[in-house]
């Protein structure tokens, strides 16, 4: 009875528009380097936390290879967050702006979408998620560059944009080194199990 069946999987290539429920953009309100860098810090930190959760979920589902990859991504994003602190000379994380951070979508642009995970996913898929996140981060700072109200903020945003572009490039190279999954990667001969 174990008819091979593809376990429900995310759509290939992660096609997606900016989430329909997007909130007002933050850039119009960003007036200082401090505020910009607070955004940068939150973006990196939330990305790190999300990757760590992804790693936990993968570990719980015995997908050690992808778990390790997410763990690695979490470390990278954590380092990015720390770099923001160092650059700014901050000894503790900055306070969130009044009313919380305002992102373009529901979440910070570098935070992975929970629903894109799959228990049989391969490093290639994980890197696709990472690539998408880096591209969104790049676009986020790009839009800050366009909307910056003063030269200082514009310059800082440009630097961040360039950094994210570098991240995109690194991930793209990483993907090139990573084997593409077979067409049947999501096939599980067993049905789901019953739990509680």
């Amino acid at each position: 009875m174990n008819a091979k069946k593809a376990a429900a999987k995310p759509a290939r290539g992660h096609p997606r528009k900016a989430a329909a429920g997007a909130k007002s953009r933050p850039e119009a309100g960003i007036a200082s380097i401090d505020e910009l860098m607070a955004y940068a810090y939150a973006l990196e930190l939330e990305a790190a936390e999300r990757y760590a959760e992804f790693a936990d979920a993968m570990e719980a589902h015995n997908n050690r290879e992808v778990a390790e990859l997410f763990r690695k991504l979490a470390r990278i994003e954590n380092r990015h967050a720390e770099q923001v602190l160092e650059e700014m000379g901050w000894v503790s994380p900055p306070d969130a702006p009044h009313g919380g951070y305002k992102w373009e979508g529901f979440e910070a642009p570098e935070s992975g979408d929970v629903t894109e995970l799959h228990y049989l996913m391969q490093p290639y898929h994980a890197l696709q998620i990472a690539l998408h996140n880096e591209k969104r981060a790049h676009a986020f700072f790009g839009s800050l560059v366009k909307q910056a109200r003063n030269a200082k903020v514009r310059k800082a945003a440009q630097e961040m944009e360039q950094e994210e572009a570098e991240h995109v490039r690194l991930i793209e190279e990483w993907i090139k080194r990573t084997p593409k999954p077979d067409a049947d990667w999501a096939i599980d001969p067993d049905p789901p199990v019953l739990a509680d």
Partner: peptide
């Protein structure tokens, strides 16, 4: 809250929801 295992099409909810 999407169920990606039994209702994978619910991944599209993120494009359907709005304030």
């Amino acid at each position: 809250s999407p169920c990606v295992t039994f209702r994978p099409e619910q991944r599209e909810w993120k494009n359907a929801v709005r304030p």
